[in-house]
Design a protein around this nucleic acid. Structure first.
Lengths: 245, 245
DNA sequence: AAGTGGTCTAGACCACTCT
DNA sequence: GAGTGGTCTAGACCACTTG
C-alpha cells in the first residue's frame, strides 16, 4: 500500500519531511510494520513518496529521535521493540554492589476494582475490574521493594489463570510473550510516604517507616496506558541522579 | 584565525563532520566565541574548512544536540548562554499553585574549609578555603528550602565582600554578572534524610523531620565544577517525574 | 536589499551485513 | 555480490531577521 498523496489542512505550512514523518508514524502506530521486520529501504520509501533520498532520510531521523524506530547500518530500519526492563532498581542503592536483577515473588494475582485514579490512568470506566498483582522483589533473599500493579482486562486475561511461579523476574518481556503487549514508554512519578503496617511487615521494616513511592504509568507504542504500578522501598535506600543542560 | 588543517591520530576513521564538530567545540571552549555574538555564517565556516555546506551544517547540528550552541533562523549561530535558573522548585510541590520564584534570604556568607568531598567535587586540594553561603528560600513568607552552597575562590571573591541584600532571588545570573561564571550544566543527586535540629528550626519543622536532599554539582561550559550545593526541603513536599523511552 | 539559517534535490561513493 | 544505511557534494530556492 502506498502513502496516499493528500495535502490535509494540517499539512499546510509544514515541511515536507515533517509531513512524511507524520505519515510514517501513523503507519507504524496502525501496525503496518512490527518489531523485528525491516521497513522498506529508504530508497524504496523515497521513490514511493516521490521525494529525494535526503528528504526521506530526514523524515526517518525524526522518528529515530522520537524513539519510534531504529536504523542499523547494513541491516535496515526497524520499529523499536518495547522496553525490556525499566528497573525500579535505578531509583535505589541497596547493599549489594552488583546491579543484578532482584528476585521476584508474586504474592497475589486477582481481578479487582482498583482505586478511581488508577482506572482513570488506565483509561477505563469507573467500577470496571482489572487484574491486580502484588509483588515483592528481593536482593540476596532480603525483600527490598513492594509493588502493586494494575493491568487492564481483557488484554491481560492470559495472566489471570496461569501459574505465576514460572513468570521469571522481569514482567515486560512476559507481557510481550503472553499478552502481546509491548511497553514502549513509561512515566515514573516519585514521591515520599510512610509504610502502612502490612507493607512494613513484608519489607521487614517498622510500621510508619519512611519510604519512597514511585508511581508508574506505562504506555504502548500507540500511547495507551497498559500498566499502572506503585512501587515502595526504604526511603534511606533511595537515590537518583538527573542532569540539566 | 582559520582552523588548522591537520589530521591528528584521533581523526582517522572518524567522519568529516565529527572532526569538524570537535574542532568547533574546542574553539568554543577556548572562548573564541562568546554568548551573544554570532559565530561566522555556515557559508563562511564551510569555505574556511573547504567542505560542502551540508557537511558543515551537520557538524553544527552535533553541537546543537550537545546544547553547546543554538541557531536562530535569520539571525545566526550563537554559543548558548548559561542556565538562568535551574530551580530546585521543580523537585517540590508546595502549597502555592503559581510557579513563582521563591524569595531568597542569605543567612551567612563566609570563607571556610568545606567537607573533603565538597573540595573533591570542586577539584580543589584538601584544606583549601572556599566561599560558603547559607540560604533560605521562602514562598509566601514561609521558609521551604534550606541551601548550603560552596563556591571556589578566587573565582567568586567578588561575592565575598559585597552586600548580599541586593543579590536578588536567582544566583546563576548573579554569578554571570559579578563573577563572569556561566553555569552550563548541572547534575542533581536526590536522596532522603532527616533534618538536624538547627536545620529544622529554620524551616519551622520538628527536629528529625524527614527531608529530601538534593546535592548539585554545577559546571561551566569547559566542564569545571563551579558550584556545589546541598538543598533540603520537607520530604512530604517532594515530587518529581521522569520519562523512560 | 542583504544576510542568515532551513528545506530540498540528485546524484556519487563508502561502510556494513548477509548469503 | 547484492542490499542496506552513512557520508559528502554542489548546487537551488525558501523563510526569517535586520537595516
Amino acid at each position: 500500500m502506498a502513502l496516499t498523496l493528500v495535502n490535509t489542512a494540517e499539512d499546510i505550512g509544514r515541511s515536507r519531511y515533517a509531513v512524511l514523518a507524520q505519515a510514517l508514524r501513523q503507519r507504524i502506530l496502525a501496525g503496518e510494520w512490527v518489531p523485528g521486520v525491516a521497513l522498506p529501504a529508504e530508497q524504496a520509501l523515497a521513490l514511493e513518496n516521490q521525494v529525494a533520498l535526503g528528504t526521506m532520510r530526514r523524515a526517518l531521523q525524526v522518528l529515530v529521535d522520537e524513539g519510534l524506530i531504529e536504523r542499523i547500518h547494513g541491516r535496515g530500519t526497524f520499529v523499536r521493540a518495547g522496553l525490556s526492563g525499566a528497573s525500579m532498581l535505578r531509583f535505589f542503592r541497596f547493599g549489594s554492589e552488583d546491579r543484578s536483577v532482584p528476585r521476584s515473588a508474586i504474592v497475589s494475582a486477582k481481578a479487582a476494582v482498583p482505586p478511581a485514579d488508577v482506572l482513570r490512568r488506565l483509561g477505563r470506566p469507573p467500577g470496571q475490574e482489572v487484574l491486580q498483582l502484588l509483588r515483592v522483589r528481593s536482593l540476596d533473599d532480603a525483600p527490598c521493594l513492594l509493588e502493586s500493579i494494575w493491568l487492564p482486562l481483557p488484554e491481560f486475561t492470559a495472566l489471570q489463570s496461569g501459574d505465576s511461579a514460572d513468570w521469571g523476574d522481569l514482567l515486560y518481556p512476559l507481557y510481550a510473550q503472553r499478552c502481546g503487549v509491548h511497553v514502549h514508554r513509561a512515566v515514573d512519578s516519585i514521591g515520599f510516604g510512610r509504610l502502612a503496617a502490612a507493607q512494613a511487615r513484608r519489607l521487614g521494616l517498622p510500621a510508619g517507616h519512611p519510604c519512597a513511592v514511585v508511581e508508574r504509568s506505562a504506555f504502548d507504542i500507540a500511547g495507551s496506558c497498559v500498566e499502572v504500578r506503585v512501587t515502595r522501598g526504604d526511603a534511606n535506600a533511595f537515590h537518583y541522579s538527573v542532569t540539566l543542560s
